[in-house]
Design a protein around this nucleic acid. Structure first.
Lengths: 233, 233
DNA sequence: ACGAGTACGTACCGGCGGTATGTCGTACGG
DNA sequence: CCGTACGACATACCGCCGGTACGTACTCGT
């Protein structure tokens, strides 16, 4: 990349030498390799030699860029989360009816959870490898933060009523995590996915305030978008 | 078989020689040691030499009783689950109002989840160490099975309405698991615990049928048509 | 009493995470 | 233009740990 520039303005402006570019490239290759192997064989089942080999470097290079196996895992974690957040963020922050937006976000997140990298690295292994406390802290900046923002939106819009936003968010997050695992290991992921969305919709529906339902519009809109198969009156 | 009466009554009844008793005793010591160390330092952070040392035997003895580290972990897993099931089972199977029984079971399960052994071994590490599929299979015979039975009871009693018992159970199980972790790592576990129960009660309340409790008439009418086929599995 | 089998202990191997050290190229000051 | 300091790796090695092979003492049935 940018070979032709040959000491062009780009390098001068960014202050990045060719050396730094190479370095960043190998680092990225290591992270990519780590994501792939951690996803396929898990944290314990992946050796650092293997990760380095797949990135076409040696373990020495790996230890130059990362302080150890844990640090490499966290880099892989961040990479997966960053990729996911791009797609998810814009859906939730999109303008429009809060209820509709929330439901779209729910479906989008379940879709994200079907990705094997996200499932194994972020959901399953991360709490064990990084420790739950650190995992929770990291999640604040990623999916968990988005989820809470969505719920706060619903509460502020007077759509639903909860005892505590923090606790509700965490409970829902746990439910979504297991839902993701369930869907991924189901014989018919498509159908299971639809059933999960239906169940969750039913649950969240139970939290709706009477005055929000009485408006009627959202209810109809939600019915229409939630699925061609469930609700007819 | 059934050798002479010259032994004590205990041996005759059980048919166990003193040698077998010793063997069983060391095996139990190994399991106890494993539960303790796996709880404190996790699966990866625990060495078999350490487990054996704490049980006052060597690694050879350990490998005589268990095929490897995984098998030892599963034995520890079973031990923790068995201990938990004793307390939990009788609460859920107790006669009385289904709703009250379910709520008592919910509180009891959260109490169980506060135990560090259950939390770390069963909830956090087991899915990673045993693999999710095997973990799920094992859980069928333990806490998950109890939880589903409780929900089926509520559904059959006409208390609540769900889209699918299986999915609802799994979602609730996931929510409870994260709730447990949240409570355990909270600065004020007592208060957090109470808030969690309140939030969950609120959620389950949203699933109640109109004849069980009256609130949100319009919403109830809409949701009635959504799940007239609640029992299928 | 004596072979057989059980319940361990002992010694060792291979793999893997981590470290210490060497090497090569590039940026940089004089 | 040249030495030099430093960054980006490679190589060699160590210690721990899971797993295996084998030895041994004790018991049990005949």
């Amino acid at each position: 990349m940018s070979y032709g520039c040959e000491r062009g303005d780009n390098d001068v402006v960014t202050g990045r030498s060719r050396r730094l570019e190479y370095s960043e490239s190998t680092r990225q290759a290591l992270v990519d390799s780590a994501v792939e192997l951690f996803t396929k064989r898990g944290y314990a089942g992946t050796s650092l030699d293997e990760v380095a080999k797949r990135a076409r470097v040696t373990k020495g290079a790996l230890y130059h860029h990362f302080s150890g196996k844990q640090a490499l895992f966290e880099a892989a974690f961040d990479a997966v989360e960053a990729k996911v957040m791009g797609r998810l963020g814009e859906i939730v922050t999109a303008p429009g009816d809060p209820w509709e937006t929330a439901m779209a976000g729910l479906r989008a997140y379940i879709q994200v959870c079907l990705e094997s990298s996200y499932q194994r690295i972020v959901i399953h292994e991360a709490p064990v490898v990084m420790g739950w406390e650190r995992w929770r802290e990291a999640e604040e900046h990623f999916s968990f933060g988005v989820l809470r923002a969505a719920i706060e939106l619903l509460v502020d819009a007077g759509e639903i009523e909860v005892v505590s936003v923090e606790i509700t968010t965490r409970l829902l997050f746990g439910a979504l995590s297991t839902a993701a695992t369930m869907i991924a290991s189901a014989s018919d992921p498509k159908k299971t996915s639809a059933d999960v969305v239906a169940s969750l919709t039913r649950v969240v529906h139970g939290l709706r305030l009477p005055q929000a339902v009485r408006l009627g519009a959202e209810c109809a809109a939600e019915s229409k978008s939630s699925g061609r198969r469930s609700r007819h009156r």
